[in-house]
Write a protein that binds this DNA or RNA. Structure first.
Lengths: 126, 126
DNA sequence: CGGAATCCGAAATGATACTG
DNA sequence: CAGTATCATTTCGGATTCCG
C-alpha cells in the first residue's frame, strides 16, 4: 500500500487532526479550495507552485478518503475533474484559523522582511 | 546538520504553524507542559509512553529554538533540567484548541469504540 | 540524570517519462 | 487534461551504545 498505514488510534484530538493535515501541501489545498469553492486539477496545480503531480494526486486521494474533499469526474473529452470541500473539510478549515493567525504572528516575529513590503492581507486566510 | 534545514519561507500562517508542531510528539509535549506547568526530562518521558530519548531530546531542542519552551539547567548532582512553556508556547496551545475539538469529532465519527466506554473527558485538552 | 553519537530501516517526497 | 508508473532522494524515527 503506497499511501501509508496511518490513522492510528489517537491519544487525543490534536493527534487525529494533525494526522489529516500533515503532508507538505494539504494546508494549501484546503486554503485553495476554501478560497475558490471549486477547483480543477490543473488549477490546484497552478495554485501550489512547486508541487509535483504525484504529490498532488496522492494528497487529494488521501483527503478524499478522509472525507475532507469531494472528487467529481465528468465523462467528457477533454477530461474534467473537480474538487471541492466537504462540510468536514470546511469545519477543519475553520478550526485551523486560529492556528493560522498564530503562524502569521510567528512570521512577523521571525521573517518580517517577508511581510513588511506587503500589508497583512498579503497572506490571508479567506 | 542533524536537525534539518526546515523553517521555510512560508506561504501562509498555516505553514508556519504546522512546521513547528509537526513531529510525532510535539503536540503531546505541549499538552504535558500546559497541564503541569513545569516538567523534568524524565517526567516528560513517562508522560509520553513510547517516545525514545533521542526523539524527545530532538523535539525539545527544536521547540526551544522555536521559542516554544524554555530549558533550565540546574548545576547540581544529580543533574536536573526543567522545561516549561513560553508565552508563545501557551498561545500556540490555545490556538491548537479548536483543532483538537475538530479532531475529537473525527474520532467520534470514525472510531466510536474508543470513546463509548469512556466519556468525553477521556481525552481532554487541559 | 540527562543526555550525545552512530547506524539502520521505513516513510515521505521529488523527478521524469508515459497514457487514455 | 488528469492522471500512472518507476526510480531516486531526502527525511524521519527507532535501537543501541557511551558519557559527564
Amino acid at each position: 500500500m503506497v499511501t501509508s498505514a496511518r490513522r492510528g488510534p489517537y491519544v487525543c484530538g490534536i493527534d487525529a487532526a494533525l494526522d489529516v493535515v500533515s503532508g507538505k501541501w494539504k494546508g494549501l489545498i484546503l486554503w485553495e479550495l476554501e478560497a475558490h469553492g471549486v477547483r480543477r486539477f490543473a488549477e490546484l496545480r497552478r495554485g501550489l507552485p512547486g508541487v509535483s503531480e504525484k504529490m498532488l494526486t496522492q494528497h487529494l486521494r488521501e483527503m478524499e478518503a478522509d472525507q475532507l474533499v469531494v472528487r467529481t469526474v465528468y465523462a467528457e473529452v477533454p477530461p474534467r475533474v473537480e474538487y471541492t470541500l466537504t462540510g468536514h473539510g470546511r469545519a477543519l478549515n475553520a478550526a485551523l484559523d486560529p492556528l493560522g493567525r498564530w503562524g502569521m504572528e510567528r512570521i512577523r516575529r521571525e521573517q518580517p522582511e517577508l511581510v513588511d513590503h506587503a500589508d497583512a492581507a498579503a497572506m490571508p486566510r479567506p
